[in-house]
């Protein structure tokens, strides 16, 4: 059991989200930075689909009602366990009564707190993720608040080394200036040559309208040469829509499952975490890649996670 001592309504229980239900209008939801969630679960030997806490409102504090393990990943933020500072992307054993405190991040927007075994909220539609927009899943379909007590599942056997252990960053994580890789989408060729150039050359500013549903960007207008009304169609997280005003919106974890705006591109899965960690005012760039390059990127992430899981199983001595 863990007890929330200080929180904001944007802090939610999240896992890898719901798959296969877009056709019922059910958004994927889940962690906005899945790589960080995966790393936290891997460090603790948790199941891949274990639920953790996505922290987007700070400071965040919780107390452990019993001895367990904790991993903190994602945004770089000062993190203390009963007063002791933890390095970033770190897992450590905790004693009964220990308190975890996370200050506002210096880099990034969302911190992930995984607990040994995972947060034990009920499975709903195949996942434990909170869907804030529709108010279901996670802990009572809502953000966490002070006084909430969350049960924890039985944790993996073995214990962490004294002092804890860290995870190597996922591929490309250290290069903050790297463009987000995109594949052209259905209406790419409706946009003018000039629009393509602008889309791929300017730095797009993240506006204050950025949440779990999507991220609205500011920059020059992207004009279409061919204007046509589209009928509603399925969309996936990462879809870069361009509404009539010409400024892109990137659809994210809790996006509506269908949309009607033209789609210029789709951010590849391996780079979606960048939008989950973007803060208003940040500048983002886009670069077009081919399908093969995008597949290689996805394999690199899968390989990194596989190595981390193998390493974690070795150091968890019994």
């Amino acid at each position: 059991m863990i007890e929330i001592l200080s929180s904001g309504a944007l802090n939610t229980v999240q896992d890898r989200g719901r798959r296969g239900l877009l056709s019922s209008g059910v958004s994927r939801s889940g962690a906005m930075d899945i790589q960080a969630l995966d790393a936290a679960n891997a460090l603790l030997g948790n199941d891949a689909d274990a639920a953790a806490i996505e922290v987007a409102a700070f400071p965040f504090r919780l107390r452990f009602a019993s001895a367990t393990t904790v991993a903190v990943t994602g945004a770089v933020a000062e993190t203390r366990l009963s007063g002791r500072r933890l390095p970033p992307w770190w897992a450590i054993a905790v004693k009964e009564g220990d308190e975890l405190t996370i200050d506002p991040p210096t880099v990034g927007a969302r911190v992930y707190v995984a607990i040994g075994g995972g947060v034990d909220v009920p499975l709903l539609l195949g996942a434990r993720a909170t869907e804030l927009k529709s108010g279901y899943g996670g802990h009572e379909g809502r953000g966490l608040k002070r006084g909430d007590r969350l049960p924890v599942r039985r944790r993996a056997p073995g214990k962490l080394p004294d002092g804890g252990v860290g995870a190597p960053p996922p591929p490309g994580r250290s290069d903050a200036d790297r463009p987000l890789r995109v594949l052209p989408a259905a209406e790419w060729s409706d946009f003018s040559e000039g629009a393509h150039q602008r889309f791929l050359s300017v730095g797009w500013r993240v506006t204050a309208e950025a949440d779990r549903q999507g991220c609205r960007l500011d920059g020059p207008e992207l004009m279409r040469e061919r204007r046509r009304e589209l009928l509603s169609h399925g969309i996936v997280p990462g879809t870069v829509q361009v509404p009539p005003a010409g400024r892109p919106i990137v659809q994210l974890a809790e996006a509506n499952t269908c949309g009607g705006y033209p789609k210029i591109a789709t951010v590849i899965e391996a780079d979606l975490w960048r939008l989950g960690q973007a803060m208003p005012g940040d500048e983002l760039r886009f670069a077009v890649v081919g399908r093969n390059e995008a597949l290689v990127a996805q394999r690199e992430v899968a390989d990194w996670l596989g190595r981390l899981r193998r390493a974690a199983s070795l150091y968890r001595v019994s």
């Binding site: 056709s23 009928l231 399925g234 969309i235 269908c258 597949l295």
Partner: peptide
């Protein structure tokens, strides 16, 4: 859409308005 529902590797089959999105595991 119904004919796609049981294909291995396909996660989701999403009918829209005169369109159909098929979501799959590219690996």
């Amino acid at each position: 859409a119904e004919s796609f529902a049981a294909v291995d590797g396909i996660d989701d089959v999403v009918p829209g308005m005169n369109n159909l999105m098929v979501v799959f595991d590219p690996l």
